[in-house]
């Protein structure tokens, strides 16, 4: 079942087109990454989907609700981590969550207080609950802003740079949390990030946008295929000429490289389905195989290539 459907979503600010006819679908429980350089239109897309601004063209359904005609329904089921922490600095951490819990309709005192405590304890902020947010570090504010986005247990969550300003340990905690929300609570998450590491670890599907336009969309594997074929890496106990010559003789193998430090052969193939034949040939040539890996281009390579091609 699809949680989010966007069709031809477009946003113009006077003469500038911030988002240009983008379309995508996100399944329930999926973590969908929205990647792109600064000014690509990521935040504008999130703002349209969370009904903060109206699209100039196109439409979107969020949780089955139309973002234009049923905006208040959309707001009820969505949790948003905005670009800025967007917290009330004169209020305490507790008061901030109290306000947003009530705003999102958690009016039962026990339920509300329980949820606030659960979140503050999870983010290690319970001890600072009575302190004004203005005294918090950037990382603490970011954690509290994420807690705010989750306070009403939304089934759909929009996260704009969730690990920005966090130390590596906290960033990992957030990544683990996002993974858990997706797997166990079936939350649909739209993740907007610059950190390709986050997208690589969390997203089952990614869309790369630049200058408001959709450049590529698909799973990490599908995107990798767009920019190049995978390489076959074979770890061997030792590498000799007999092995390399026999591989070079195969028509399926385009290039053979040797990584002497790791005692590894790196092969460029035309077709990855020839892997069993190649492995058989290595064994036949007397190679003692330690590992066989099909390595796809990293998301970073894919991203940079696609962005450069898109800019050119």
């Amino acid at each position: 079942m699809e949680s989010i459907i966007a069709e031809g979503l477009t946003k113009r600010f006077n003469t500038i087109i911030a988002v240009d006819h983008i379309s995508f679908r996100i399944r329930e429980g999926e973590v969908f990454g929205l990647l792109g350089p600064n000014g690509a239109g990521k935040t504008t897309t999130i703002r349209m989907l969370s009904c903060l601004i109206k699209p100039s063209e196109g439409f979107a359904l969020v949780g089955g609700y139309d973002i234009i005609k049923e905006s208040n329904k959309v707001r009820e089921i969505v949790g948003v981590l905005t670009e800025n922490p967007s917290l009330y600095e004169r209020l305490t951490a507790y008061e901030n969550l109290w306000f947003f819990a009530e705003a999102y309709g958690i009016s039962d005192t026990n339920e509300r207080d329980g949820r606030i405590r659960e979140l503050l304890e999870f983010f290690d902020l319970w001890g600072r609950r009575g302190d004004k947010v203005g005294t918090f570090s950037r990382g603490m504010k970011q954690k509290l802003a994420i807690a705010r986005a989750l306070v009403h247990r939304p089934p759909i969550i929009f996260l704009d740079e969730p690990t920005a300003g966090l130390d590596p340990e906290s960033a990992k905690e957030i990544r683990d949390l996002i993974g858990r929300l997706s797997k166990h609570e079936k939350c649909t998450i739209l993740l907007c990030t610059h950190r390709l590491e986050d997208a690589e670890k969390l997203c089952s599907k990614v869309m790369i946008i630049n200058k408001g336009k959709n450049i590529a969309i698909g799973s990490l594997e599908e995107l990798a295929r767009l920019v190049g074929k995978p390489t076959l890496q074979i770890g061997l106990l030792s590498i000799n000429e007999k092995i390399t010559d026999s591989l070079k003789a195969l028509k399926e193998v385009k290039d053979v490289f040797i990584d002497p430090q790791l005692s590894r052969l790196i092969l460029n193939l035309d077709d990855e389905s020839s892997t069993p034949k190649i492995v058989k040939e290595v064994v036949h040539a007397g190679g003692m195989i330690l590992s066989v890996n099909m390595v796809y281009p990293s998301l970073e390579e894919v991203y940079l290539k696609l962005i450069r091609e898109g800019t050119a």
Binding site: S50, C51, L52, N72, R75, V80, S86, A103, G105, R148
Partner: peptide
């Protein structure tokens, strides 16, 4: 000015 408006407007308060 305090950049709190976005989270406020994202709530289902009409």
């Amino acid at each position: 000015e305090r950049k709190t408006i976005e989270a406020l407007l994202a709530t289902p308060i009409s």
